[in-house]
Amino acid sequence: MIIDPVTLIVALITVATPVLLAAIGELVVEKSGVLNLGVEGMMIMGAVCGFITAQQTGSVALAFAAGMGGGMALALVFAVLTQVLMANQVASGLALTLFGLGLAALLGAGYSGLPVPSVTRPFPEALRDIPVAGPILFSHSILIYIAIGIVAAVWYVLTRTRIGLVIRAVGENHDAAHALGYKVVRIRFATILFGGACAGLGGAFLSVVRVQNWFDGMTAGAGWIALALVVFASWKPWRVLLGAWLFGGIAALQLRLQAADVGVPVALLDASPYIVTIVVLVIISSDRRRAALNAPAALGRVFHASS
């Protein structure tokens, strides 16, 4: 049996969206020179806050706002730890993931299985019924279009605006940026919060749109894939989109190959996103000059105004 490419594409776009949102947020954070390993924790906070809000208020828009708020609340903790108290970013990020998973489990206790409102699709039935293009372009929930919009906006801001230039300057050399009078800590606070909002939105998409339920630990490692994706995309926004669709595509394809009774080694396909990431890392690092151009030079380094 042949796999229908149209449904495959529709599925991979849905599968990719939570990771895409988290990764595009993390890209901005890393572009400003901060490595936040707490993506998983921020995502699950977004998932639980979004789900509880959707359940309580019946409003999907509020749920997405609450998801972003949940992610930002956790990101704020990270920002205070790393930017004000100057804690180690790697350790703080890992702690954030563990804290987020635990806190989300606590908040979400008792909410599993409760009903949530369904999410409206922005395009009318007539458009969705167009063969091939209809399902692929017009059949999704609103958040998927927003996610792609965020990618475009991040690309535009980072590469075409003054604010983007400042963010990149802070990420490349915070001492120089500071000497020029830019508020390094304030800018990084803003990017960290933006990253938290994106991760939270990705989590809310997972619980409110895709699964429509809340379970402990439901992000199941998506945050880590988002982190890998940023490296895979070598800190370029459109490549994050491509990478997310590639990873999502592999996941969606392997399930479809199984459903079509095609004898494929499932374990190999499951591992392939990670293999691809390693290959890309090897290719990137083989050319030292290019790697240096792409990775923010001040990534993960603590900034102290007097140093």
């Binding site: 796999i3 379970f215 439901m218 199941a220 969606a252 079509a260």
Partner: peptide, 17 residues
């Protein structure tokens, strides 16, 4: 045994088949 997102994707893949 338990990964809601993967379980949902698997269900969708079967439905598409």
């Amino acid at each position: 045994w338990f990964d809601p997102a993967v379980e949902a994707d698997a269900a969708q893949a079967l439905i598409d088949a």
